[in-house]
Nucleic acid binder design. Structure first.
Lengths: 192, 192
DNA sequence: TTGAAAAAAGCACGGCCGTTCTTTTATAAT
DNA sequence: ATTATAAAAGAACGGCCGTGCTTTTTTCAA
């Protein structure tokens, strides 16, 4: 329960800016009562990231893996991911990874390691989805899967920036438009 | 001089994490001696962003505008931008906007406004470069310039993430590869 | 119902934060 | 050389931080 709220706040403020005192106040707990559940702030941050990864796997990756390989799976994965990045409910505001990514990209340590591992794993899923699509004959086998994954990741990142920071109402339309064009290229000259 | 160092540190730590005391220590100044140059921390942050924008305009945009419209200008703009995002010298470590973007995307105020305005302006340059290329007959006039700008921005963002957070040595290669493919699409069926 | 174990609270600590005031030092014009 | 002006320093403030201790409350099995 504590972690759920912590995830929500961390996705707004970032992992560093989130303070234990503030968390305790919001949960109507004493500072030390809350702190008792964690060894340190870094430990809390790691647990937050683990929780986020669990959520991401459950709501973005798992549903996509139930789609058949090729276009349906890739599209589902992309749309879920986009939805994840845009989400603004009580659970999460935007992508919790992003705020963390910028603060941590120059600070080595266990928190950063946890984040990097999660991010690598998610991108690997993207890459593997492309590869499996190729093996299934749905995608152009010439296409560099790693480059494609980086490209798709870019769609999501730029969407996030356009939407959250610049509040561009057309961000989503264009992100989907770019993805569909990407998909078209990917399936170009493929029969099945 | 103060601002230059502040820019360098802010691009590493972010605008919020950067503290006045720390800055003063590094510059061998007293905290209040430094603070005297600014009305508040928010004012310092705004001035940092203004300085960054000036640097970005000078090193990324201006050189690109000296190239002829069309492919050369767009490529130059993209490469400069990529180089800016990757830079790791004494002046700057990575893109200072990015760290700020995530912290601020939910916090209204003058600092955020300054950042949004700068970012909008930079993206407008991107968009306008595409449009001018279209008008000059170098790019496919059907292409939606705004979507293209968002796509290119994605190349840069994903490159930044791959390189800085995940430390992928191939990030740059793939970013350029993706851009060149984008360029190919853009110039498809255009004679001149 | 008692008692071990876990959770929460209370309290205090040193430390850094942004900011304000006052005093000293340096700069530069008369 | 004197003086107005600006820059830096010094000291203090209230506030929040993360974290350790000790004490109280709650939980739950024996």
């Amino acid at each position: 329960m504590i972690l759920e709220h912590a995830v929500a706040r961390a996705s707004e403020l970032g992992l560093e800016a989130l303070s234990i005192g503030q968390l305790a106040r919001e949960l109507e707990l004493s500072k030390s009562g809350l702190f008792g559940h964690f060894d340190s702030k870094a430990d809390l941050q790691v647990q937050i990231l683990d929780k986020v990864t669990e959520q991401f796997t459950r709501t973005v990756i798992k549903p996509a893996l139930q789609e058949p390989r090729g276009v349906p799976r890739l599209r589902r994965l992309f749309e879920n991911w986009l939805h994840w990045a845009a989400s603004k409910d009580s659970q999460r505001k935007g992508c919790p990874y992003m705020a963390a990514a910028m603060e941590l990209d120059d600070k080595p340590g266990p928190v950063r390691d946890t984040l990097v591992q999660a991010q690598r794993q998610h991108i690997y899923v993207l890459e593997r989805t492309l590869q499996l699509g190729q093996e299934a004959g749905a995608f152009d086998p010439q296409y560099d899967a790693a480059a494609g994954a980086q490209e798709m990741y870019g769609f999501i990142l730029s969407f996030h920036f356009y939407k959250r920071l610049m509040q561009d109402p057309q961000a989503e339309t264009r992100a989907k438009q770019n993805f569909e064009r990407f998909l078209q290229r990917l399936t170009q000259g493929v029969t099945s």
